[in-house]
Write a protein that binds this DNA or RNA. Structure first.
Length: 416
RNA sequence: GGAUCUUUGGCAGAGUUGGUCGAAUGCACCGGUCUUGAAAACCGGCGAGGGUCACACCUCCCAGGGUUCGAAUCCCUGAGGAUCCA
């Protein structure tokens, strides 16, 4: 949720920034007006309420003194009707405002490049040089099938398209990577947390997936519960409605979960292989920080994710997402893209975002700053998407005969 | 699945004949006095959100609804916890 007071106070500045992210200025104008109308309704309601409270107090006095209360009661009854009306007006305005305000994305940072889509993302740097192959490298689905690591037919049999089943070394690699990543993150000071894969509506509203993106979530029938699209949701919402002592910050967490996404908007994209699945494994980083230290933590998160790829000797690059590619809740995002020789391109394997106080405002996550309670900053990032890491390993470690060498660092995790 | 009890501020714990209760008290915490320093003792502060320059004022005592001029206090529903029964 954006800061409505800020929007009201500095409308021109804020709206200009939001327009960069494609938000219609007319909508913002509307939000501003609605916000002012709501305030007005509130003042009206509250003053009526105050009168009511005062009169009710008088009742006690009258009764004790044995005075006649019929006149007072008439006044109070009349006021009561007005209160009911005023409350109704306030309620309606509140609802209206929330409906549109909740759908407004976070304000992008000034240094986020302008752009429509990933074409305008800006490369920040490259780590490791892709190696030259003496043969034409294959794509991962071919290698996966050839080695018997991943079977797509089985996935379809059990659940449908965009599901797959991992066998033998493929399955082991998955498990090894999860452990390797969690251990690495733990070494970097991230506390490992194991969370539910099912959460309620409030949690998803807190991190911004709801109300806007309900179509992309798997909902449990008959209940207000959803499968998580990312561990970011439970991890961040652990602190929903909390006031965290300043000494406890920063909170650095890492957690492994499966992620469940309908991929409603991705029809036809990445239909081959396991780049885009309805269910995938991911090791996540989530941090909760004071506002002034969130950028330092952000850098630490990017570094941590990048180091894992380096340890796996996978060439990758860092990319600063442009406004059009930026997620709903992010103020800025750095993507890590791993080199896929089979596809001859870099593909996203991690996405690290600073949401600043956008989620904190929705989820009411605050910290004690001296006497005051202030909103924290929340950050999240993958370190890493497990399936895509396997894709990268398959393509980068492939041999001419189609066999795949297991990265050294993972061998101990695979019983090799 | 049934019965009874229970749900209050960071924790503990009053409040249960509805009014001056946003809530006693203790602990914890913060500031101060005292002390070479610390402890103890004493003094003061100390829930949250909105609102205001600051007050005032409004809201919140698990959630939702109801009774009432007025509810933490009464009634209903739901959720969590404890105990007993099956």
């Amino acid at each position: 949720m954006i800061d409505l007071k800020l929007l009201q106070k500095e409308f021109d500045t804020v709206s200009k920034k939001l327009m960069r992210k494609g938000v219609d200025e007319k909508l913002l104008e509307k939000v501003k007006v609605k916000f002012e109308e709501l305030k007005e309704a509130k003042v009206n309601f509250e003053s009526l309420q105050a009168a009511q409270n005062a009169m009710s107090k008088e009742f006690g006095v009258y009764k004790r003194e044995g005075k006649d209360i019929s006149e007072l009661k008439a006044k109070v009854d009349e006021n009561k009707i007005r209160i009911a009306d005023a409350l109704e007006v306030q309620r309606l305005r509140q609802e209206e405002l929330e409906k549109i305000a909740m759908a407004i994305p976070n304000i992008p940072d000034d240094d986020v490049p302008d752009g429509e889509d990933e074409e305008s993302n800006v490369e920040l740097g490259r780590v490791l040089t892709p190696k030259e192959f003496s043969f034409t490298p294959k794509e991962h689905w071919e290698l996966a099938e050839q080695n018997g690591w991943i079977d797509f037919e089985s996935g379809v049999k059990l659940a449908g398209s965009r599901f797959s089943v991992a066998y033998d070394m493929g399955a082991k690699l998955e498990r090894a990577l999860i452990n390797f990543m969690l251990n690495y993150n733990a070494k970097k000071g991230y506390t490992e947390v194991s969370v539910p894969h099912i959460v309620n509506r409030k949690a998803l509203e807190g991190t911004g997936q709801l109300p806007k993106f309900e179509d992309d979530l798997y909902k449990i029938e008959g209940q207000e519960l959803f499968l998580i699209p990312t561990a970011e949701v439970p991890l961040t919402n652990l602190f929903q409605d909390e006031i965290i002592p300043a000494d406890n910050l920063p909170i650095k967490m890492t957690g492994y979960t499966s992620c469940y996404r309908k991929e409603a908007g991705a029809a036809g994209r990445d239909t081959r292989g396991i780049i885009r699945q309805h269910q995938f494994h991911k090791v996540e980083l989530v941090c909760i920080t004071k506002p002034q230290e969130s950028e330092a933590i952000f850098d630490d998160m990017v570094k941590t994710a990048s180091e894992i790829l380096t340890a796996l000797e996978l060439p990758h690059r860092l990319v600063n997402l442009c406004t059009g590619d930026l997620g709903f809740g992010a103020a800025h995002t750095t993507d890590i893209e791993v080199w896929l020789p089979g596809q001859n391109t870099y593909r996203e394997i991690s996405s690290i975002s600073n949401t600043r106080d956008f989620q904190a405002r929705r989820a009411k996550i605050r910290y004690k700053n001296g006497k005051k309670n202030e909103l924290v900053n929340t950050l999240n990032g993958s370190s890493l998407a497990v399936g895509r890491t396997i894709v990268a390993i398959m393509e980068n470690y492939q041999n001419e005969d189609g066999s795949i060498t297991i990265p050294e660092v993972l061998k101990p995790y695979m019983g090799l």
